[in-house]
Nucleic acid binder design. Sequence first.
DNA 1: ATTGTGTGTCAACAGTTGTTGGCATACGGT
DNA 2: ACCGTATGCCAACAACTGTTGACACACAAT
Lengths: 193, 193
Amino acid sequence: MTASTQPTHPRRSDATRAAILRAARERFAADGYERATIRAIAADAQIDPSMVMRYYGSKEGLFAAAAEFDLRLPDLAPVPPARLGEVLIRHFLARWEGDETLVALLRAASTNPGAAERMRGIFADQLTAAVATFGSDPALTARRAGLVASQILGLAFTRYVVRLPPIVDAPAEELVSWIAPTLQRYLTEVPEN
Amino acid sequence: MTASTQPTHPRRSDATRAAILRAARERFAADGYERATIRAIAADAQIDPSMVMRYYGSKEGLFAAAAEFDLRLPDLAPVPPARLGEVLIRHFLARWEGDETLVALLRAASTNPGAAERMRGIFADQLTAAVATFGSDPALTARRAGLVASQILGLAFTRYVVRLPPIVDAPAEELVSWIAPTLQRYLTEVPEN
DNA sequence: ATTGTGTGTCAACAGTTGTTGGCATACGGT
DNA sequence: ACCGTATGCCAACAACTGTTGACACACAAT
């Protein structure tokens, strides 16, 4: 247990730790959990594989550190209710293009139970919490968040993992105009029954 | 090259071949490409690992045979244009629940380039072709198909791979009523610009 | 009955994987 | 200057992987 809140003295090996983490994220994002070998990650970071073990304990531990992630969802309270969908899809697209951690998590979640569990946590906790801030019916909140997750993850999967050409080629603005209404409906529409 | 159209004499080992294929689909669907080992598949099929190699050449060859898949999309021409979304989501849900091949392909596509290529082929060819049967604007057809794929694959990913509780718990009928309008819009809405 | 071919098992190979322990060196505090 | 500790590399292990070849048996045709 290293104290994460305490401002620990900066260690001399911080640069190495950071290099490992950066290489790990790249490899996990590009190859998935099992194909991303510790040896390859260490080579990218230009250090010995045994260093990875010393600093992160195991491959699982390294992944846990590399896949640390926060959706950084904005506060949705001040957003005009009619623009919720647009704000959300814009945020997600920006978050995705700028940080490969999510792609790493997405690829790994397909085969690694721990990664899937973390993915579940992120979208169940963070997204559900954000939806709950303006939601009226608590019984529907979880389902709304799940539906939003299904479209968001589907977009990420087709754009960054499978790389479906028509989705890869689409400019971000066009994706926004197509998908925003979908999220909007998932978030706010009141079902008939 | 075994003639696939010719009614070849039934081989004595057909039962074994089928057992291997069934076990392979199960393992690939449950574990993904790299974690599904030939030894485990052979054990499930209660035969020797070397038989897998003899009948399917390699692990890649086995996967190619096990992931053979057809979306079996219905002819959309006679469908009332306003009900296209509903027909599609119903078809996909039924196709998914009844055949684990698609889940195997989905899990493997995250890490295996060949599987991703096949996934691209299925959704680019079969789905785009179906969309084209009623589509008006050819330039938009591919994008419409891609958007539909993003929602369909996102649903499958959250329901069968990551297993997001609110999506797993949702009865199929409810998913239909939420997602049908999304597909409907992706398929038929005319963009403003 | 004998031959040939298809079906199956066994043992082993070569490579890769995560992981470990030992050893050298450089640093920071005294 | 000295010493403890942190940092790094090297070599190796044990387990597992896909894959291969040799060998035993069963069946069908002649």
